[in-house]
Design a protein around this nucleic acid. Structure first.
Lengths: 107, 107
DNA sequence: CAAATCCATAGCTCATTGGCTATATAAGAT
DNA sequence: ATCTTATATAGCCAATGAGCTATGGATTTG
């Protein structure tokens, strides 16, 4: 029953993890070392977060010698965009119904 | 430093809480009792979640006698939509740059 | 081959949090 | 006034999870 947006919300809820993803979106592919240098947390913590981001489909990894390059997988945000869209549409639908009701009462 | 989307992500990360918000979006205003009846958790837990949703600006409450009616505040999702938009745009910009580079190399 | 570098994993701790029951507060109902 | 109903708050507990250090595995360098 776990929908795709569930894991996305949980994964992006942590500020450190979200900051890593944001940086990959802004600056493109980066190694773990480069990410760690500015993350403000230890390298193992960065690796752990990247692993969770990968599980959520938000990043890809590419191995090259002893370094691992991570990059954002932007398509992974789609379920989140869909979800917000659905919520907005529900609200608008109910709003339209209310509008119609008021129009009918006005006649 | 805490941006608006930070609290939104954290608030919507919990499935029970998100389900409450979804129901308010789908079905409109509801009392705490009505929400509790289908939430699968106890009434105090529902009240607590609603309180957090309210703090995040995702719901409004309206007191009427001894009941409290909650409703979704859809505008509150805007920072989330903006954030996903920004991330997408970063990615697209870098993609365009890559495209241009390839075009120049092709000449 | 030895040493150094890069990343991942293991194991620990502490803080946070989602759940519960019990109770307080407030507003009808009798 | 008393009892019941609706919601909120308090206090507790167990699970989760984000951080750390230490270490393992793999690759490059000397």
């Amino acid at each position: 029953m776990a929908e795709a947006h569930d894991m996305l919300f949980r994964t992006l809820a942590d500020p450190t993890r979200r900051a890593l993803f944001e940086r990959l979106c802004r600056e493109g592919e980066k190694t773990v070392g480069a990410l760690t240098a500015q993350a403000g947390v230890s390298q193992p913590v960065v690796s752990k977060h990247l692993s969770l981001l990968k599980q959520a489909g938000l990043v890809r990894d590419r191995h090259e010698g002893r370094q691992t390059h991570y990059s954002a997988q932007l398509g992974a945000l789609a379920p989140l965009v869909d979800w917000t869209g659905r919520m907005t549409r529900f609200w608008e639908t109910r709003f339209d119904e209310l509008e119609n009701l008021l129009r009918r009462m006005d006649q």
